[in-house]
Design a binder for these strands. Sequence first.
DNA 1: GTCTATATAACGATAGAC
DNA 2: GTCTATCGTTATATAGAC
Lengths: 208, 208
Amino acid sequence: MSSMKDTIKSIAIELFFKKGYFATSISEIAKGSGIQKASIYYHYRSKEDLLFSILKATMDDLTRYLKNNLAGLDDIESKIRVAVHGHVRFHLERQKENFIANSELRGLTSEHYRAIVEKRDEYERIFQDLIRQGREEGIFADVDVKILSYAILTLCTAGASWFNPGGRLTVDEIADIYEKFILNGLKQACEASAPSRCGAKGMAICKA
Amino acid sequence: MSSMKDTIKSIAIELFFKKGYFATSISEIAKGSGIQKASIYYHYRSKEDLLFSILKATMDDLTRYLKNNLAGLDDIESKIRVAVHGHVRFHLERQKENFIANSELRGLTSEHYRAIVEKRDEYERIFQDLIRQGREEGIFADVDVKILSYAILTLCTAGASWFNPGGRLTVDEIADIYEKFILNGLKQACEASAPSRCGAKGMAICKA
DNA sequence: GTCTATATAACGATAGAC
DNA sequence: GTCTATCGTTATATAGAC
């Protein structure tokens, strides 16, 4: 189960998360894995190959997780709720890998970079389609699909940078807060483009 | 005006943004500045000192900008609108510095790290106070202040990672979209915690 | 204030024994 | 599959001339 190849990978995830890819040396990864640095190269052809291996697995798992969660759901609102909730869950539960996947793309060769960005784009497209459909069906306001899809995804992803696993709130509680915040943002009950156009008084009509 | 010290700084901002702090060498910064690498050390005592100098100036300007924008405003809703709008503006207009300020903190010595985090905390506290006041005055829903302040700030900050200065939308247009999205998220017209509890039908009451 | 030259250390990666 | 030994390169930073 826990082969040396997997051990190296998990040590690398810890270090890349904590210190960053460029600031982490092969020596440190070897030390953490309990072997000599030359032995790393039996399992991975280069440091970059190790990084790519981490990012590829993370992106593949992320997309598979989303597709599984969406399967069987019919209405758009449920779909986008589940998509947002699952995105937050995945990013908080696999915090370190996801943090790396969103901050260390510059460490990849150009071919590997393209491969990862392509996977990310595929994932983003699913979200954009959901928002677009929700808008067309009148569930969401007339929002800018592209900007808001980026906003929503980066918002949820950013959670991985400050999330504290032993903290005050559980993963699902945080996911609920995000889901609520985002759905209300998408529905845009208030026009809100000019100050005070949608004040506390007007809102009382909508509340509970 | 454009002293060599400033030139070095602006070249460093370009390179740290494009390649990352650790992946950028003093040689490259010197080459971009048109001098020899040893000459860098006349202006900055170390590479880390150069990074700190960039981050400190950015954080100081950010907080000063916020305080200036808030001065003279009375009602909380206007204040939070202006705070969000300004945060987005600042991050998009000084995209590179802000990107560095949010991704390269690990490159700092521990003393410098503490100094920057302290500035960031002070800035965050202003936002948290605004959300808290808005909640107490009944303008916003009964939201989790801490989580939502992080969410809002990271959301707006993330814009600096995908923003394209020559793209489809202007800085102010994007800031408007964010402002609207966030204000609606904070007001939470819909309870939204369980799927379909706040469907399209219920929303029709709130719309325009 | 910028230069040439260099000290010193660490890096990623390879060769070849076992 | 892991080891020791090492190659070749690059890094940050300093010394001292101009």
